[in-house]
C-alpha cells in the first residue's frame, strides 16, 4: 500500500533530521489508512533516548512516548501509522537492527542524511513473517 505524504510534512521531517545530524533522530507518524494509501497527516518529533555516545547510529523512544501518542491518535480518530528516523551518512535502507525491533502493519520512513543534508526518504514495511522489509511506494503530494 503506497504511503502518501505532503511536501510540507516531508520538508518538516527533513528539517528535524538535519538538526539532529550527525546523530539519529526520529518521531511518530499519525494518519489515516484507506483502500488506496496510508496517508500521513502529522509527524511528531520524539527525543532520542539512546545512550548519547551511541546516537550517531542508534535511535530509541521510550514506551511512555508510544503510550502518549497512541492515546492521542485513538482520541483523535487517527491511526498511529508508523515512525520515521534517520540514517546519518548511510543508505535509507533498514538494517538488521531495524528489523529486529520492528512490527508489521507499520510504516517505517527512513531518511538518509548525508553531511547534514537530507538526501532521500524511503518507505518500508515489515513482512508479516518478520523475515524482511518490503519497500513501499511513496507519493509526495503538493500541499
Amino acid at each position: 500500500m503506497p504511503v502518501r505524504i505532503t511536501q510540507e510534512l516531508q520538508a518538516r521531517i527533513f528539517h528535524h533530521l538535519e538538526q539532529t545530524w550527525p546523530n539519529e533522530g526520529g518521531g511518530f507518524l499519525l494518519g489515516e489508512v484507506a483502500q488506496d494509501a496510508a496517508t500521513v497527516c502529522e509527524c511528531i518529533a520524539v527525543e532520542n533516548v539512546f545512550d548519547a555516545a551511541e546516537q550517531y547510529h542508534r535511535y530509541a523512544m521510550t514506551p511512555q512516548d508510544w503510550m502518549r501518542l497512541e492515546d492521542e491518535a485513538d482520541q483523535r480518530g487517527l491511526d498511529l501509522l508508523g515512525y520515521y528516523h534517520s540514517h546519518p551518512d548511510s543508505p535509507a535502507i533498514p538494517s538488521d537492527y531495524d528489523r529486529e525491533h520492528a512490527l508489521p502493519n507499520f510504516v517505517y520512513l527512513i531518511t538518509r542524511v548525508q553531511a547534514g543534508a537530507a538526501r532521500e526518504m524511503l518507505a518500508w514495511r515489515l513482512r508479516t513473517n518478520r523475515s524482511r522489509f518490503d519497500s513501499e511506494k511513496m507519493e509526495v503530494v503538493s500541499d
Binding site: 539519529e24 526520529g26 520524539v46 533516548v49 539512546f50 545512550d51 548519547a52 551511541e54 547510529h57 542508534r58 535511535y59 530509541a60 523512544m61 521510550t62 514506551p63 512516548d65 508510544w66 503510550m67 515512525y83 528516523h85 540514517h87 546519518p88 548511510s90 543508505p91 535502507i93 533498514p94 538494517s95 538488521d96 537492527y97 531495524d98 525491533h101 520492528a102 512490527l103 517505517y108 527512513i110
Partner: peptide, 21 residues
Amino acid sequence: LRIIPSIAGGRAGCESAPSLR
C-alpha cells in the same frame, strides 16, 4: 494490561544491544 513496543532503529554496522538512557 497494556502492551507497548519500544521503538528503536539504527543504521547497519553496529551490533550493540538496545540501551535506554
